[in-house]
Structures are given as structure tokens and as C-alpha cells.
């Protein structure tokens, strides 16, 4: 039995905001199936009572003083933008209705 179906891969592609072609979906379905089957080996480690680690260091709540510091100018921040208008990022419509 396969670990992941082509429909599931299509769903993952949608969640990941990747407009994949049908060929790509076929290809990734096969590869992801093999990878997921292999990584499922993590289940072999008995770890019921073990706490999860999200991180290697025992660091929590690193704060800095809330002070004004130098930062990028608007020109710098917008320097790599695909489209700019009035010192702002210009983006395609984000709502369903006509703008």
C-alpha cells in the first residue's frame, strides 16, 4: 500500500502554494511515497516517555531592550520588490471581488 496518494500530493501542493503540472504530481507522488516510507522508521525508536526537542539549546525567551535602533530606509526595504507604488509593495489583488 502506498503511504501517500496522488490526490494527497495535489492537496499538499495547494497548501504549499505550488502550481504543479500533472506530470510533476505523478513524479512527486512516487518519490514522496518512497521517502515517507523510509522516514517512517522514526517510529522504531521507543520514545513514548521522551519529551520532544524542537531545538538543540536550552534557550528560552531571549529578550532585548525595547529601544529604537537604526533600520532599513523605505528605499532599501523596497529595493528588491517586484513592484512598488507610493513607497509601498504593490501586490496583486488579495480579495475575491473586483478591486
Amino acid at each position: 500500500m502506498s503511504a501517500i496518494t496522488r490526490d494527497e500530493v495535489a492537496h499538499l501542493a495547494r497548501l504549499s502554494r505550488l502550481a504543479l503540472t500533472d506530470d510533476e504530481l505523478d513524479h512527486y507522488a512516487t518519490q514522496l511515497d518512497a521517502i515517507i516510507e523510509s522516514v517512517a522508521k522514526v517510529a522504531e525508536v521507543a520514545a513514548e516517555d521522551v519529551p520532544p526537542s524542537s531545538h538543540a539549546l536550552p534557550l528560552t525567551n531571549v529578550f532585548r531592550a525595547d529601544e529604537v535602533r537604526p533600520c532599513l530606509t523605505p528605499e532599501q526595504a523596497l529595493s528588491g520588490a517586484p513592484a512598488v507604488e507610493d513607497d509601498r509593495f504593490r501586490v496583486p489583488r488579495i480579495l475575491g471581488e473586483e478591486a
Binding site: 504549499s16 512527486y28 518519490q31 520514545a47 521522551v50 520532544p52 524542537s54
Partner: peptide, 29 residues
């Protein structure tokens, strides 16, 4: 693309505990 989809899968509800959650425990071990 492969890794983004694999990661999205491992973090999906229903799979999270078996994959990402278990991997984090293995990390502790």
C-alpha cells in the same frame, strides 16, 4: 518543492504526531 511538500505533510494534522512529533522525540534520544 519535494522538501516543502514533505514538510507540509509531516506537519499536517493527522500525521503530525507520527512524523514531526516522533522525529522531535528521536532528537531528544
Amino acid at each position: 518543492k519535494r522538501r516543502i511538500m514533505l514538510g507540509t505533510y509531516a506537519l499536517s494534522s493527522g500525521y503530525y504526531d507520527a512524523y514531526y512529533g516522533q522525529a522531535q522525540k528521536v532528537r531528544t534520544v
